[in-house]
């Protein structure tokens, strides 16, 4: 591939932005090495603290702008958990809020030029999705015991179809963490790679590069939407899965 690119003269490396690098020096990446992952996750934590802790330190009855934003996030996720996962799901509100704030802030910070998008890595999203999967499974068995398995046995279907449906339900249950993680990671990776590809065109086209630059601006707007919607979708799917574990009404 490298030889082809040299022949064509078009050097586009859309995947370079996802490379994990050590922050200091050039050594091998051990599990404890501070890398750009560390840096941008730390920035996400700082942004979260600025957004939700510093802005609310006056505890005003009549909120300032920052406090209004913090209350909006709180109200938005609180309502979502209550509506989707039910009243029992509110016990998991801090957990779901953690997931949402991390995913949302990582997505948004990743859109800063030259930044590093932690949520575009399958390692990160897979851990998030597996945490949700394990939480739902363990909580389901803890709260309902063996009755949790009844969600695979669709009692409203004809008896002859039930084993088949059980297999399908079981497969879809275990595919959940996969689709949950790939959706988030894949969306962000694809969007950032597309922007990078267009940026590569812009470098090679001379005066006509206003076209790819305009396209980048448009895609950037779309990516802002995608970043917010994917955080929302990740969170609401967590609530939907959680309803299976804590709710009494299931499909």
């Amino acid at each position: 591939m490298a030889t082809e690119e040299h022949a064509g003269g078009l050097q586009i490396h859309p995947m370079d932005q996802f490379v994990v690098k050590p922050l200091f020096g050039d050594g091998p990446i051990e599990w404890y090495t501070p890398t750009n992952v560390t840096l941008w996750m730390g920035i996400a934590v700082l942004a979260m603290i600025a957004l939700l802790v510093l802005s609310t330190r006056r505890r005003a009855i009549v909120p300032s702008r920052g406090q209004s934003v913090a209350e909006m996030f709180y109200g938005f996720i609180h309502k979502m958990v209550e509506d989707v996962a039910g009243h029992e799901g509110l016990k998991f509100f801090p957990y779901i809020m953690t997931l949402f704030m991390f995913v949302f802030l990582s997505n948004m910070l990743g859109l800063i030029p030259m930044s590093f998008t932690t949520t575009s890595h399958i390692a990160v999203t897979a851990v998030l999705a597996l945490l949700v999967f394990l939480t739902v499974t363990l909580v389901g068995f803890y709260r309902k015991g063996i009755g949790f398995l009844s969600m695979f046995w669709v009692s409203s279907a004809p008896l002859i179809l039930r084993p088949i449906l059980a297999i399908i339900e079981l497969i879809s249950y275990f595919v959940r963490p996969l689709s949950h993680s790939i959706r988030l990671g894949g969306n962000l990776m694809a969007g950032h790679a597309v922007i990078k590809v267009f940026a590569g065109f812009a470098g090679a086209m001379g005066v006509a590069s206003v076209v790819p630059i305009a396209a980048i601006a448009a895609i950037y707007g779309l990516e802002l939407l995608v970043a917010a919607v994917q955080a929302y979708v990740f969170t609401i799917l967590t609530c939907v899965y959680l309803r299976d574990a804590v709710g009494d009404a299931h499909h």
Binding site: T35, V37, G42, A44, V45, P94
Partner: peptide, 17 residues
Amino acid sequence: NQIFWLLVTLVVIYLVL
């Protein structure tokens, strides 16, 4: 590396929240 730092981040965010 990523998983370690992710877990640290999540724990910090969870505690702060």
